[in-house]
Design a protein around this nucleic acid. Structure first.
Ligand SMILES: [Mn+2]
Ligand SMILES: [Mn+2]
Ligand SMILES: [Zn+2]
Ligand SMILES: [Zn+2]
Lengths: 132, 132
DNA sequence: CAACTTGTTGCGAACAGTTCTCATTTGCAT
DNA sequence: ATGCAAATGAGAACTGTTCGCAACAAGTTG
């Protein structure tokens, strides 16, 4: 499943930068941030590291409406969903038993198996609403 | 809101091709299909037409896991969700009052407004499961 | 600590999907 | 029929992402 991996300062740098980021961030932005801090890390490496973190379950990922892959180092371990502010990117982690149940039930009703679901909420947080 | 639009055979061709497609299709595939049928429609026009249909509510759209924008001419009018077979693309339209309510409630609880939600179910339909 | 093996890196090129530019065409109101 | 703005098509341009590969370096071995 997981083949041997080496510890590099690059991977650690990405992990750290992701942890410091507030909401969901894309590879490019994270790369810019790192370079701005003096790092010499390459963009491809940031992409590779983020993919690795996501696969390892250390980060959650989702697609922005613009089609960019965004990542976030989440506090909650295990399956959960997100409520994301379109304005500032502020993110809340959500439990959703109701939705889990609904997904399982509906899948079964239609004779589908191996159900996976994408459930994301986007909105404007209180602060961002005031500004506008 | 909606500015003047003209009726062109191109738009109608896209609408028709989309209606004949079984599941969700992308612009490129739809363009290939049309060209294969002898149409001289341009790719950019297919993109524009699909975007227009989606905006007009005549088609639903979602992002594939690979980041492609897929469209489908839906039977159900009004807001709904989908259960899509990973194998054959077969799609079922879903009502989900429970989810709607959950989304609205959770959004409000966190002081968010203008909530939008992405809710898609992917699985393996009965037929595709047998094959595997 | 040196030699070695092999995962990892950084760079630029290559890709995929989508949008843009703009000269030309065409719907349609007059 | 005439005129004008909307729409089209071809390709260039853009965006996000992956690839290819030579140089590098983590971790193992002796
Ligand atoms: Mn869930
Ligand atoms: Mn809904
Ligand atoms: Zn906000
Ligand atoms: Zn199927």
């Amino acid at each position: 499943m997981t083949r041997p991996q080496r510890n590099t300062w690059q991977r650690e740098a990405v992990r750290a930068a992701l942890a410091e980021a507030h909401g969901f961030v894309g590879a490019q932005r994270l790369h810019e941030t790192l370079r701005a801090q003096g790092s010499t890390i390459g963009l491809a490496t940031v992409y590779r590291s983020l993919a690795a973190l996501a696969e390892a379950g250390e980060a959650d990922s989702l697609q922005s409406p613009e089609g960019e892959n965004l990542f976030r180092s989440c506090a909650t371990r295990g399956h959960h969903h997100h409520l994301i502010c379109r304005g500032c990117g502020d993110t809340r982690e959500l439990e959703a038993r109701v939705v889990e149940d609904w997904a399982a039930r509906v899948g079964a009703e239609h004779g589908f198996s191996e159900i996976e679901h994408v459930v994301d909420l986007f909105g404007l947080c209180a602060r961002c609403r005031e500004v506008a």
